[in-house]
Design a protein around this nucleic acid. Sequence first.
DNA 1: GTCTATAAATTGATAGAC
DNA 2: GTCTATCAATTTATAGAC
Lengths: 212, 212
Amino acid sequence: MAATLCNVSTSRPPRTRRTATGERRAAYDPETLLEVAARVFTERGYDGTSMEHLAIAAGITKSSIYHHVPGKEALLSAALDRALDALFAVCDEPQSTTGAAIDRLEHVIRRSVEILDEELPYVTLLLRVRGNTDTEQDALERRRTFDRFVTKLVAEAAQDGDLAPEIDPGLTTRLVFGMINSITEWYHPGRGVTVHELADAVVAVALRGRQA
Amino acid sequence: MAATLCNVSTSRPPRTRRTATGERRAAYDPETLLEVAARVFTERGYDGTSMEHLAIAAGITKSSIYHHVPGKEALLSAALDRALDALFAVCDEPQSTTGAAIDRLEHVIRRSVEILDEELPYVTLLLRVRGNTDTEQDALERRRTFDRFVTKLVAEAAQDGDLAPEIDPGLTTRLVFGMINSITEWYHPGRGVTVHELADAVVAVALRGRQA
DNA sequence: GTCTATAAATTGATAGAC
DNA sequence: GTCTATCAATTTATAGAC
């Protein structure tokens, strides 16, 4: 079983502490550590990230990290769950389960872009994972489950005649979600395009011809 | 400056050698080592790949690798150049420089998919690189130059009225090439769809509405 | 062109002081 | 909740025999 982050839900509000040089600043908050870890894992790769790298990025020592989490893999697991939980929540939304397939598909596509914006560091990390550890393989399996949900929507929409039938649903899903996922390569929230412009552009390219 | 792979162009045909157990097999060919390295770098990440990992995958010892290349980074550099040289060759093809912008764009898109097929291990590696070393940053800079070439084509085609003008050329390029690049996540040559079906599907999704 | 042996640095993780 | 000090294992790379 995958390791889990300890104390995330029971964390107290941050207090202050003194650094080695006597400088006062906020003591560490497990939430912040998780985001720092997700970012560094994404930049350097999970294997390429040492506890020392994380410690420097977080501004504490290696040993202090072990006070918050049992180890490196627990940080990875918690960060990946964060992205996956958000994506699966979309599948359970009423707009994803009722109405015409093409409308449910558009809703899932738009919400996926929004989650990419809201949970950017965690979604980006999820997309970089290649299955080298048990934790990564568990995450990839959950990703495949999400893909199957979307593929079914594409197939239904094609059967309804609301999508060009000449391309395979699985191939369409891969290309469209490949396009969505590639947004993590360059998107920075609050800089350049907005989330809504982005979602419009994706829907325009992916479902064009169907658009009003 | 980036390190370079030594002896690639002057390599002799493979001979035979004995392993520790006396088994006879082909002696090492620098070309093969480069492909093995690209594949392992892609699977485990460059930082996550040790010389020991490469040695096991190549079937020789760590020390023997140092006979062929000056170090780990030289292998990375040579593999990335292979992908980038192929992409830049496309920019120089006559169909990429003459005719209507929309036709030049379609040609570059189709050829990009073909190069992804022909040089899969090297292109896949190129797309995983994040700029953590000088070698990686040089590669990213060359990738950006290629992107600018394509962005110009998209802008020209939009000005000609051959592409929907409502989306920004830069954004379109990012989304379309994000879609193309995502193919490396699941495509295996000779299994499932063919390169031509793939190129057709990409052009259909990317330039739909303009298609015959 | 391959190997064994080894060097010097870095790795993930622990012990225990404050 | 943080730190210093340390451990055993692994890392990149070299020396030199065959």
